[in-house]
Amino acid sequence: MDNQEKETLDRIHEQVTNNPVVIYMKGTPQMPSCGFSSRTAQAMVETGEKFAFVNVLADPLIFEYLPKYQDWPTFPQVYIGGELQGGCDITLELAESGELKTLMAKANEAVSEEA
């Protein structure tokens, strides 16, 4: 592992652990650049819960190394409470069952209690 890869993976780890809910996506929730990212971000917006996002197209290093972080090859990637939930299909299933809102609320609440 070269220095650039290590620094990028460390940065990803900080983003995942410092944000209760984060989506790595192509584009932004307001201007997604792919259908999978669009549907995933929309499902997250519809929960009414707060979440952070990282536009992987704006950061070539994250685009390159994020798939190695949790051995998940595709985008988007959704992390809740520091744990990879999955991509589009899994997030939409969680949204449909109502579990996405519950998981996001619990992660956001945990941070509020720490503050």
Rank of each mutant, 00 (worst) to 15 (best):
D2S: 15
D2V: 12
D2G: 15
D2F: 01
D2L: 07
N3F: 12
N3I: 15
N3A: 15
Q4L: 14
E5D: 02
K6Y: 04
T8E: 01
T8L: 02
L9E: 02
L9Y: 01
D10E: 15
D10T: 11
R11N: 10
I12W: 00
H13F: 12
H13I: 11
H13W: 09
E14I: 12
Q15N: 11
V16I: 14
V16D: 07
T17F: 04
T17H: 07
N18P: 03
N18E: 13
N19S: 06
P20N: 12
V21L: 09
V22K: 05
I23A: 04
Y24T: 10
Y24P: 00
Y24R: 10
Y24W: 04
M25W: 08
M25L: 13
K26S: 01
K26W: 06
K26M: 09
G27R: 02
T28P: 01
P29I: 10
Q30M: 13
Q30V: 14
M31I: 14
S33T: 09
S33Q: 15
C34P: 01
G35M: 04
S37G: 04
T40C: 09
A41H: 00
Q42E: 12
Q42H: 09
A43Q: 03
A43S: 10
M44C: 05
M44P: 00
E46T: 08
E46R: 11
E46C: 13
E46G: 02
G48W: 13
E49M: 12
E49Y: 03
E49R: 05
K50T: 03
K50W: 01
F51C: 01
A52C: 11
A52F: 01
F53K: 03
V54T: 06
N55H: 05
N55E: 00
N55I: 03
N55F: 02
N55L: 05
L57G: 02
L57E: 03
A58V: 09
A58H: 10
D59V: 10
P60L: 06
P60H: 08
L61A: 08
I62G: 01
Y65P: 06
Y65H: 11
Y65M: 13
L66I: 11
P67C: 10
K68R: 14
Y69I: 12
Q70D: 15
D71F: 13
D71H: 05
D71I: 14
W72T: 06
P73V: 07
P73R: 02
P73T: 04
P73W: 00
T74D: 07
T74G: 07
F75W: 07
F75T: 04
F75G: 07
F75Q: 04
Y79C: 11
I80C: 06
I80G: 05
I80T: 03
I80W: 01
G81A: 05
E83L: 10
E83Q: 15
E83N: 14
L84H: 12
Q85M: 15
Q85R: 08
G87R: 00
G87E: 01
G87W: 00
G87A: 00
C88T: 01
C88V: 00
D89Y: 06
D89I: 03
T91K: 02
T91M: 04
T91Y: 06
L92V: 01
E93T: 13
E93H: 12
A95K: 03
S97G: 06
G98E: 09
E99K: 11
E99W: 08
K101C: 10
K101I: 02
T102D: 07
T102E: 11
L103M: 15
A107V: 09
E109R: 06
E109Y: 04
A110Q: 12
V111M: 12
V111F: 09
V111S: 13
S112C: 15
S112H: 08
